[in-house]
Design a protein around this nucleic acid. Structure first.
Lengths: 139, 139
DNA sequence: AACTTAATGCATCATTGTTGCATTATCATT
DNA sequence: AATGATAATGCAACAATGATGCATTAAGTT
């Protein structure tokens, strides 16, 4: 996942591959877990606040990133996996927040989570799990 | 669920039963589905904005209401059911948002939703479902 | 190199979150 | 019912984020 990868990705989604966008994506990629907005802003000081706002919007709209979590007025953003694209943006995977190290990770479902609500049409299911992650449990 | 009920409830949670608080709780109760913050504010104009903010905080803290949903920077609040109390505030029930009528309701799980993430300690599970509710499907 | 169009920066305003402090209302006690 | 302790409220003030308009700049195409 180097700069060239993101450059191509941006082009494939009809977005211009500007320096800011590539820096942002490389940053988010290196962060490994879903990145809180405040951390993104701190890291991207060269970028105007409004530009960052609009950049996140357009990357989200084109299915390159998604808002993984929102809690206590803090939003966490993550780069989309292969399962996301512009047309079909589904996130049935689980967002796990570790209350110990404060990280948010996108977990892949090991088992199929079945949710049924008789009479209702279900379009999207998001599951937020809070607990203590493997690393923190060990320590 | 009349005013007296909420007055007693507030007292039982060591909160003063002020007019504002009772009005708010009666309002939220009558709303039936989880109430968006903007609607609460519109309805409670007699109350100072800061007081409303602090009131929601304290009611939340004492397990009388909970934030059912947060999306697009809009928070939805709902009165807690019998399963909530100050000490053990668990919400394994499902929050369902109808994209047609925009209402958010707290659904009771008909089946047990089992989430397992090997190695991790799971403390809280929140499930957000988006779709079309029974009433809207019929129309 | 020139041109087209998207992206950016700056200004600006709205909304919500948050805290401090003085005033007022609630509730328990007398 | 009056009094007193304490919680609740209102107002002022500031911070953070969301959101839009417009002029300027940069990216990608020809």
């Amino acid at each position: 996942m180097d700069a060239q990868y993101f450059k191509d990705l941006l082009h494939s989604r009809k977005l211009k591959a500007t320096g800011h966008r590539i820096n942002l994506l490389v940053l988010m990629d290196q962060y490994k877990s879903a990145m809180p907005y405040s951390s993104i802003q701190e890291a991207m000081t060269s970028m105007d606040r409004v530009t960052l706002y609009r950049t996140l919007e357009s990357l989200k709209e084109k299915g390159i990133i998604h808002k993984a979590f929102q809690e206590n007025n803090e939003s966490y953003y993550a780069i989309c996996g292969a399962e996301c694209d512009t047309h079909d943006h589904h996130h049935d995977h689980i967002h796990f927040k570790c209350t110990s190290c404060e990280t948010v990770t996108c977990q892949t479902t090991t088992q199929k989570v079945q949710v049924t609500l008789p009479g209702n049409e279900i379009h999207k299911v998001s599951i937020h799990v809070e607990g203590v992650c493997q690393t923190c449990v060990a320590n």
